[in-house]
Computed example of a mutant assay.
Amino acid sequence: MKNTGYVLTGVANFEKRELPIPEVLEDDVLIQIEYMGICGSDIHAFNGDFGDVTAAAEEQGIMIGHECAGTVVKTGKNVTKIKEGDRVAVEAGIGCGKCDMCKQGLYNLCRDMRFLGCPPDYKGAMQRYMSYPSAWVFKLPDDVSSLEGALIEPLSVGLHATNISGIGLGDSAVIFGAGCIGLTVLLSCLAKGVSDVVVVDVFESRLQTAKKLGASAVLNSSECDVIKKVIHILGEEPKYIFEAAGNPVAAEMCMKLIGRAGVITLVGALLKPSSIIFEDISEKEVTIKTVFRYRNIYPTAINAIAEGIIDLKTMVNKVFDFEEAQHAFEEAAAQKQEIVKAVLKF
């Protein structure tokens, strides 16, 4: 049993290394990773968009990756609910369990959060074997594949976003951004019985995927007046808007488009400054909500897939072998127009 991993050592550079098999503590399980999703944040880290990540990579080498699933090959002596041979999905964020946020069940807001593949530890999933606390792994039923298991993580973001927004049966929504997170928001809206969902993006391949997944309409913002078009389609200004592109222009458009007493939910990671024009929303009593990862949602996500309520496989349009990790990240970064969701197969 050998543990091969890919360590980020600088901007756009992975180094393949032979690693020791991780120690399995008494409450841990050792997982043989089978699939890992390539997240947009992973691409940002790879491209050097996060200064602290690049500095750590150049100084010590780091391991990224947090969307993963695999098979348990060893368990610690205290582990009873998971056994060897179980296929599991891994919840990436672990709260301290002691702070005020954790005690309220809001562990995604923990100030001492340990998140897979992120600072300060940078212990990510880009390795064949990974040890992880058993309390944060979830058994996959037979009718949920390991590929789908790896995508529970981004799906959880979409489910959490729709929960926070308050959207429900019979409502309509607009989603800016048809990348992986925007698509999981779409799937979550549809699972809640939302009647009409308009998805906006600039990449045609992503819009077509949104259409396949059930969007009632898709709009290419580079080809039309989005505000006029959305109002024409819905018959009114939308009450619910999700910004899942992480784009300042899209965020500003949300303010102009939202209807009275509407709810704007910011899901995407806005890495650049955005100007909120309060004149656009001050007379509408608009509520703006923000999303940070997810909490208490993995069992719901797994059940939704098992019951056939949510289809995750359709948005995966590129699967790379683990040995192609360098090429996979290069292509995922360069082919944003074509690659909707890329995964590594171990």
Rank of each mutant, 00 (worst) to 15 (best):
M1W: 15
K2L: 13
T4G: 14
V7I: 10
T9E: 15
N13C: 13
N13Y: 11
N13R: 15
E18A: 10
L19F: 05
E23W: 11
E23D: 14
E26N: 02
D28C: 07
D28N: 00
Q32P: 11
I33E: 08
G40A: 06
H44R: 06
F46Q: 13
G51Y: 13
E58R: 05
E58T: 09
E59K: 14
Q60G: 09
Q60M: 14
G61H: 09
I62M: 11
M63K: 05
I64G: 04
H66M: 10
E67A: 13
G70A: 02
V72S: 08
T75Q: 04
T75C: 09
V79T: 00
T80D: 12
K81D: 10
R87E: 04
V88H: 05
V88G: 01
E91F: 06
G93T: 00
C96W: 01
K98G: 11
L106H: 01
F115N: 02
L116P: 14
L116E: 11
G117A: 05
C118I: 10
D121L: 11
A125F: 00
Q127G: 14
R128N: 15
M130I: 15
Y132N: 12
A135Y: 06
W136H: 13
F138Q: 08
K139T: 01
L140S: 03
G149Y: 03
A150M: 05
I152V: 07
E153I: 03
S156W: 01
L159P: 10
H160V: 02
A161I: 00
T162Y: 02
N163Y: 10
I164G: 00
A173R: 01
I181G: 04
T184L: 14
L187D: 03
S188L: 08
C189V: 01
G193D: 02
G193Q: 00
S195V: 12
D196Q: 06
V197M: 10
V197S: 05
V200G: 08
V200C: 09
V202K: 13
F203I: 00
E204G: 08
Q208S: 15
T209Y: 13
T209V: 15
K212Q: 12
V218Y: 14
E223N: 11
E223P: 08
D225M: 07
H232M: 14
E236G: 07
E237F: 07
K239W: 09
I241C: 00
P248S: 05
E252G: 09
M253L: 12
C254F: 02
M255P: 02
L257H: 03
A261E: 12
G262F: 01
I264N: 04
L270D: 02
P273S: 06
F278P: 04
D280C: 14
S282T: 02
E283T: 14
F292L: 05
N296W: 05
Y298C: 03
I302H: 07
N303D: 09
I305D: 00
I305Y: 03
I309S: 08
L312N: 07
L312Y: 01
T314V: 12
T314I: 12
T314S: 09
V316H: 08
E323C: 01
E324N: 10
F329S: 05
A333E: 09
A334V: 07
V340R: 07
